[in-house]
Design a protein around this nucleic acid. Structure first.
Lengths: 195, 195
DNA sequence: CCTACCGATCGGTAGG
DNA sequence: CCTACCGATCGGTAGG
């Protein structure tokens, strides 16, 4: 049996914590819970992490980074607004489904971050939403999208996608691309048969 | 000063708990927190309620009932699928915005219900979703809606609406009807200008 | 509705 | 990574 290095153990702690935070919530998950699942004493966790909140911070800011990076790549491309929106949704869904447990924690447990982290977190989220809003505004200027409340629409769009980790099963039949295809198709083209 | 009756006090406890559960989450809200905001001792809460979980049960099942009743009324009406969908969304949004704090608790904190209540809760939610799914299926049969994954679409639709309590401000400029109008318009007609 | 209190559990530290 | 332990806090009860 190969000895586990500290790095691996830390990774293991974060992964198990992610699962527990998703299932039970951050506040309802105790360090003794977590340690028990890993097979060590609660006190031993602190050889690898500084605090319970540090775990949450790691999860939240890792996800935030992933979302940001994936969107920034797309912003550089020269695309029409509807193509850009579709690509943005696809990469959003890809990040989301790559680790749906971490995504669920990211979306539901961020409020338990302490103040200064919370501030950074909310600023990043706002920034991210604004990039989507800009795509819709551009699309309207280009004559592709109808007049609408862009912020409202983006929040509705992101909400409908972000809720997914709560019911998305990786073994399900839909790939990230198919999910994004479905979502963008509904939002861009609507449900009605065109006449 | 008029003496508060027990009924009023119980109502006050539930309302304040709803606010705290929304802001901090159920698990992170202590009975001492709650009592402090009301201005009594924690032990005194138990003259009015049986347990912390009873408060959560009251909130969740009250909301579940409201949602159900509003939808059942619409099911009886003879309407085309797109009209029925719109009406269903309007009354869903109305229930949601009537008490957005209770709605937020309903959508985010139900997992802290104990097992038997959890089972009932999930059954009701499934039942509710199925009614929406049926509307979409009927709409496809009537030739109004295109072919789609009805369950997927309903979950996306409800998610985009249900996320609202986390950012909806009653003093905002949009009425429930306008919100429902925006949401259904996007879903039914899409963002693209018809050509 | 309060005082007084219960056993259980919390996140975390000291020291090895 | 463990044993031993800390002060704080938890939901809730007894008795008035």
């Amino acid at each position: 049996m190969i000895t586990k290095t500290k790095v691996n153990r830390k990774q293991q702690i974060i992964e198990k914590a992610t699962q527990l935070f998703q299932k039970q919530g951050y506040a309802a998950t105790s360090m003794r819970d977590l340690a028990g699942y890993i097979g060590i004493e609660a006190a031993s966790l602190y050889s690898h992490i500084k605090s319970k909140e540090e775990i949450l911070q790691t999860i939240c800011f890792q996800m935030a980074n992933d979302f940001f990076q994936s969107l920034e790549k797309i912003e550089l491309e020269k695309l029409s607004a509807d193509e850009k929106l579709k690509k943005a949704v696809i990469s959003h869904v890809k990040v989301l489904t790559k680790d749906s447990a971490a995504s669920a924690v990211f979306f539901s447990e961020w409020r338990h971050l302490s103040e200064s982290y919370l501030k950074d977190f909310l600023a990043m989220r706002n920034n991210y939403e604004n990039k989507f809003i800009q795509i819709l505004i551009d699309g309207h200027k280009e004559g592709i999208f109808k007049k609408m409340d862009a912020k409202f629409t983006v929040l509705a769009l992101l909400s409908s996608i972000n809720w997914m980790p709560s019911w998305y099963k990786p073994e399900g039949k839909l790939s990230p691309e198919e999910i994004a295809e479905n979502v963008t198709d509904v939002f861009i083209n609507g449900l009605k048969i065109r006449s």
